[in-house]
């Protein structure tokens, strides 16, 4: 299928034609116009390129619909409504279309209402959160991108001087829009990651924090001295510079941290719905799996918790994970309504 796709020549002109067809068949009346439908179907069947171009158009047609209440989409809707209102008001005397203006007013009110619910602004702070099993991509005001993993809470505070974010729980990947005059920092527990234009992943795992640098450079420093983040390289209490492909892991309750090379792809596999473990303790793997699961994996047994595991798992499938672990590590899995317990079976 992929091979087919690549050999098809889809140019802009063809996409325009497909988009014109998508517009023509649009409508909400019950019965499509037979003549238009027939012509459309003939066009669709005429060449594989047409079908492929149409598929892409169909995907683009309502690509934002599922995200109508996402903060960046709300912003785009407000902008569009403002624009229509401004332009409409300028033309008010010329050609007043009251019905359209009324719809604009109603839409503005609706967008404001949605905004108030899902986009709480407190003292210039934006709070983004995801629930269990939910992932979300957010574009911040400066164009920086944040991907939020399941069960994550992120507070964003932008001022003219600085872009300050706090990851309160969970995991997120940051792709930072370059602006050296407005440092971008992410604080997670007792560490602050300072970046200018770069991509990195921050993961709060129990009491520790994992920072993985995907590209560019960042400084990780203890959060203690709350400077307004002028020069990132300012000598502070043992700031650490990371190189791309390195992961810094703090140790619970200790100023010390370890740095080791990792595959950035593995650290951000969650964005693709996968969890990749490379020789990590079972307890840690379970904690990650549990982020997405309704039924949690628990490991009451210290010996079991320390066993190391490797493998690739789908997020949201704790049952599968538990079964695989039981099989490969020779553990006993006990399923109850809200948890799966992994224990070392009694010897014998």
């Amino acid at each position: 299928m992929t091979a087919d796709r690549q050999t098809l020549e889809i140019d802009r002109e063809l996409l325009q034609t497909a988009a014109a067809w998508r517009l023509r068949i649009a409508g909400d009346d019950s019965e499509p116009d037979p003549a238009v439908s027939e012509a459309f179907n003939q066009w669709l069947a005429a060449r594989p390129e047409h079908a492929e171009a149409f598929d892409r158009t169909q995907a683009a047609w309502d690509v934002l619909d599922p995200h109508a209440a996402a903060p960046e989409v709300i912003r785009a809707r407000r902008d569009a409504l403002d624009y229509a209102k401004r332009t409409g008001e300028r033309r008010w005397g010329l050609d007043p279309d009251r019905r359209a203006m009324f719809r604009i007013a109603a839409s503005v009110a609706a967008v404001m209402a949605i905004g108030a619910v899902s986009w709480p602004m407190l003292d210039g702070k934006d709070v983004y959160r995801t629930h269990h099993g939910e992932r979300r991509q957010v574009t911040l005001a400066d164009g920086s991108q944040v991907a939020l993993d399941s069960d994550t809470r992120l507070v964003v505070r932008y001022t003219d001087q600085a872009r300050e974010l706090t990851l309160e729980r969970g995991q997120a990947r940051f792709d930072v829009a370059h602006n050296p005059f407005r440092p971008f920092s992410v604080t997670a527990r007792d560490r602050t990651v300072v970046a200018t234009g770069t991509a990195f992943n921050v993961d709060i795992m129990g009491p520790s924090v994992h920072v993985t640098l995907i590209e560019g450079s960042v400084i990780v420093k203890p959060v203690t001295q709350r400077t307004v983040l002028q020069a990132p390289a300012a000598p502070a209490a043992r700031p650490v510079a990371l190189k791309a492909g390195q992961q810094l892991a703090t140790l619970a309750g200790s100023p010390a941290a370890t740095i080791q090379p990792v595959k950035a792809d593995d650290a951000t596999a969650w964005e693709r719905g996968k969890l990749i473990f490379d020789d990590v303790p079972l307890a840690e793997a379970a904690e990650r799996v549990n982020r997405y699961a309704d039924r949690k994996v628990v490991i009451p047994d210290e010996r079991a918790a320390r066993l190391n595991v490797s493998g690739v798992f789908r997020t949201g499938d704790a049952d599968d994970f538990a079964r695989a672990m039981a099989q490969y590590l020779h553990l006993q899995a006990t399923f109850s309504d809200d948890e799966i317990s992994l224990t070392v079976p009694a010897s014998g």
Partner: peptide
């Protein structure tokens, strides 16, 4: 409605929509 608000012809509005959809399809319509 869009045409009336923005002072454009309906076909001009449709051209804008087609252009936008085609561009989105080109960039991310897989």
């Amino acid at each position: 409605e869009i045409a009336a608000l923005l002072g454009l012809s309906v076909s001009a509005v449709e051209k804008h929509i087609i252009r936008a959809v085609a561009h989105l399809a080109e960039r991310c319509g897989k």
